[in-house]
Design a binder for these strands. Structure first.
Length: 285
DNA sequence: CATTTCACCTGGTGGC
DNA sequence: TGCCACCAGGTGAAAT
């Protein structure tokens, strides 16, 4: 499901519903994947902690946790020093992070259930198990940081520098999370289309003007997608189980053979970096 | 080091 | 209906 706009939507939705609540009971499944640390240890680490906030970093959802506490859950105002641990959720291809009532039916492929003091549950569901669940104690490791730059914050010069001298296809470069954090297959294709750039162009051969068009197009398409709750291509839903609407705005992604919305040329599908890639041969040079 | 390929999983779709 | 090939929002290890 999940690229930057979808992950942002999920993180905001979870944050709105569980911030200040406390984890009182944890059930984790028995598969090796998606647990980066053994499930039994992870469950023990999570129990009793207050949820101080939930935010997106790249394609990761980072839940900030306080120390183990008894009594009433509390506080909406969080100080950085209150955060002693993090629970990091990556949704992979098919992961869902849902906030539900305890009575809600348990979906197949549910791998984690966190029962909260309020009675709500946080559930992680992931059929393909490409997702990852990781617990980090901040006394033992540093806080989670994405290796790549945030596409919505990076400025023109830094953006251009990312691609300088690179021989790989611009599409492959956009997908590289250590350059830009959060861009996936949908928004790579959509931003290249809006910037008028063919996906197979060598990243290092793009002009400064083209790179700036790309940066702006990417920023706009991500911003618009967040506003519409992300793209629901097959089964993506937000923390409340609600689909997004940005798939209605797609100009090329999964529109092979359909007419370009600008020039009517048939949208073409190729494979770049091992991924389906869609573009308009007329509008993109 | 930069780049490419492939394995990791399950489920849906469409052809025969 | 069954079987099979192919495809899917991602990534990290191994190969080149």
């Amino acid at each position: 499901m999940p690229e930057l706009p979808e992950v942002e939507t999920v993180a905001r939705g979870v944050d709105a519903r569980v911030r200040g609540d406390r984890i009182v009971d944890v059930w984790l499944g028995s598969h090796k994947q998606p647990f980066k640390t053994p499930a039994v240890k992870q469950a023990k680490d999570l129990e009793g902690r207050t949820i101080l906030g939930v935010a997106r970093v790249g394609k990761h959802i980072v839940m900030s946790l306080g120390g183990i506490a008894q009594g009433k859950p509390l506080k909406k105002d969080v100080k950085r020093e209150d955060v002693t641990a993090q629970w990091i959720v990556h949704l992979g291809m098919t992961g869902r992070l849902l906030v539900t009532t305890p009575e809600a039916e348990i979906a197949p492929h549910t791998h984690a259930r966190l029962t909260l003091h309020s009675g709500k549950e946080i559930r992680f569901v992931d059929p393909r198990r490409f997702g990852r669940l990781e617990f980090r104690e901040l006394s033992k490791s540093s806080g989670f940081e994405a290796p790549g730059a945030e596409p919505l914050r990076i400025e023109a010069e830094a953006f251009a520098a990312l691609f300088k001298g690179r021989k790989l296809a611009i599409k492959a470069a956009l997908l590289n999370q250590s350059l830009l954090a959060g861009v996936g297959n949908i928004y790579a294709d959509e931003s290249l289309n809006r910037a008028g750039i063919r996906p197979r162009r060598r990243a290092g051969a793009l002009t400064r003007k083209e790179l700036e068009q790309l940066r702006v197009a990417l920023s706009e398409v991500l911003t618009q997608a967040i506003k519409l709750g992300g793209s629901s291509v097959s089964d993506y839903v937000d923390a409340n189980g609600v689909k997004g609407f940005f798939q209605l705005e797609h100009r090329v992604y999964q529109r092979t053979g359909e007419p370009c919305r600008t020039c009517k040329t048939s949208i073409r599908r190729i494979v770049v970096a091992g991924r389906s890639t869609h573009y308009c041969p007329t509008c993109q040079k």
